[in-house]
Structure formats: structure tokens, C-alpha cells
């Protein structure tokens, strides 16, 4: 099957390649749809896409809250749980994709597989593509179980972003990358999402392994980056820097302060990260 798959990058892969042309890493920001409300999450994604004083994220990774988020740490988990309590639905991701595209960034979604399966794999791919979405990041779906998704992504011209980890064997890295379209998501540290005070050497090692095994792969590195300095470090070896918890944290703090609509701190973090990926070593 992998021989018949489209490999040319779609919009998100092209955005990473364009950043590379500019001599910098791309900035991928994650936010869950529906937290603190659907409307406010769309406003936050618009800000993330546009930036505040400078540029924003190149790609926005729209998370769909899920009841059993096996890969997420406490920050994203809490936002997701509260979003579900507030009534967020899978279909809200389509409005989010439209908002991100309108604000000038490339929308992708990160979703646990059961949500896609219950919506219908083909229907989800169709509706997400129609909303301007570029591709899906699937943390609990590896190519082994992805037959239906491979077909739907081809049919609707969507990118497939699978994950590789430090524990992946060489064979699995090669096979996973061959099933990707656009770029591959490297999970830098063993473990769940969440900011860390120092980025792990495992990230650089993993990126180096992928480059050696499958040259010319575009690699986004995720999990752990919390500020512009760390983003600048990761930008030295990865093609894209993925940031989630550090952004979501600002929303939780605003909600805790009783001002969920206040995006001031998020604007500051977005600017810091956007500057970080552009910093020259």
C-alpha cells in the first residue's frame, strides 16, 4: 500500500518547507477546540495564527478533546475535560479549521482515533478537507491499523502525520515515514505531553536517526518546549517546533483568574515562540 501513497507535501508540509527556505524552523502551535468555550478557542487560535506583535504559528494543530487522552499530560487533559463538560463536539473542529485558515495559518487536527471512527473516517476526512484542513495527526493510530485512513486521506488529498518515538526501531521509523504525507511527528521525550524545564537530548538523537534512515524527511519535534529559548534550541535541528502545553497553560491561568477571555499572556508566549524559531544561532 505504501508504494501507492502520495508523498508530495500538502499545505502543512509546504509551510514547513517554506520556513526551511527562509532558514528557520516552522512553529506549530496546539490548542484544543472548545476550551474555554468554542468561541473563545477560535479567538485563541486566530491569535495563535496571526501572532501579536510579530508573526504567529505557521501551522495550528487543533486538538479535539477526548474522554481518555492517553498521550496527554495534566494541562491538556484538564482543558479537554472542561471543554467536554462545556459541550464541545467533534464537528466543532471544522469551524476551528476555517478560523485558522482565515487567519493565515495552516490547520491540521490532532485527534484520538475513536472520535474519527465514530464520525466516520471517510466523512471526517471529507468535512475536514472542505473546512480547509490540511491533515491529521493521529497519536493512537499507527500505519499498522490505518488502512481506512490511508484510503480516505488519498481520496480527500489530506496529509497523514504519524508519530515516531525514541523507542521506535529503525524498521518502524522507515515504515512510518513512508506512510506519512507532509511530515513526521517526532515525540522528543518518552512520555506524555507537558512542558519541561530542559529539552531532552533524546529529541536531537531521534531527529538525527530519522534523517539518516529516511533523508529529506520533514520532521516536527513535539513535547516539551515551553519558551522561545527552548524553541530556538530545537529549531537548530528540527524542521518544525511543536508547542502545546505552554500555550494551553496560559488559557488555564486566565480561566483561573476569572478572565477566560484575556489572551494577553498567550499573545506574549506566541510572540516569544515565533521569535525563538527565527533566532539565528
Amino acid at each position: 500500500m505504501s508504494n501507492e501513497l502520495t508523498r508530495e507535501p500538502g499545505a502543512s508540509g509546504r509551510a514547513i518547507a517554506a520556513a526551511k527556505q527562509e532558514g528557520r524552523a516552522a512553529f506549530i502551535g496546539y490548542l484544543p477546540v472548545g476550551y474555554p468555550s468554542v468561541d473563545l478557542s477560535l479567538a485563541a487560535m486566530t491569535l495563535l495564527s496571526q501572532g501579536h506583535r510579530s508573526a504567529g504559528a505557521d501551522i495550528v494543530e487543533i486538538g479535539i478533546p477526548y474522554s481518555d487522552p492517553m498521550m496527554d499530560g495534566p494541562v491538556i487533559q484538564r482543558a479537554g475535560t472542561e471543554a467536554l463538560r462545556a459541550g464541545v463536539r467533534t464537528r466543532d473542529v471544522f469551524a476551528a479549521a476555517e478560523a485558522v485558515a482565515a487567519a493565515g495559518a495552516v490547520p491540521v487536527t490532532m485527534t484520538y482515533w475513536n472520535l474519527v471512527e465514530q464520525y466516520g473516517v471517510d466523512a471526517f476526512a471529507r468535512d475536514f478537507a472542505n473546512a480547509g484542513g490540511a491533515g491529521l495527526i493521529t497519536p493512537d493510530l499507527t500505519p499498522d491499523e490505518a488502512e481506512e485512513w490511508l484510503a480516505a486521506s488519498e481520496k480527500y488529498d489530506l496529509e497523514r502525520i504519524f508519530l515516531v518515538a525514541p523507542s521506535s526501531t529503525d524498521e518502524r521509523i522507515v515504515s512510518t515515514v513512508q506512510h506519512c504525507r507532509g511530515w513526521v511527528y517526532a515525540t522528543a521525550v518518552m512520555g506524555v505531553t507537558g512542558t519541561r524545564s530542559s529539552t531532552s537530548a533524546a529529541g536531537a538523537d531521534l531527529v538525527a536517526r530519522v534523517r539518516e534512515l529516511v533523508p529529506d524527511t520533514l520532521i516536527g519535534l513535539g513535547l516539551g518546549v515551553s519558551d522561545g529559548d527552548q524553541a530556538a534550541t530545537v529549531a537548530q535541528y528540527a524542521d518544525a517546533v511543536i508547542v502545546g502545553s505552554a500555550l494551553v497553560k496560559t488559557l488555564l491561568a486566565a480561566a483561573d483568574a476569572g478572565t477566560p477571555e484575556d489572551l494577553t499572556e498567550m499573545a506574549r508566549v506566541v510572540d516569544d515562540l515565533a521569535e525563538g524559531v527565527r533566532r539565528r544561532p
Binding site: W113, S168, T187
Partner: peptide, 20 residues
């Protein structure tokens, strides 16, 4: 071989766990 009982079972886990 890949853990399927008819259409059921399989392995829907993060890549990080596949090796283990």
C-alpha cells in the same frame, strides 16, 4: 499475528509503546 480477533482487537497505541 497482529492481534486481531476478526474485526476486533489490534493495537491502537502510541508508537512509543510498540517496541515494548
Amino acid at each position: 499475528q497482529t492481534g486481531h480477533f476478526g474485526p476486533f482487537g489490534g493495537r491502537f497505541t502510541p508508537e512509543a509503546l510498540h517496541a515494548a
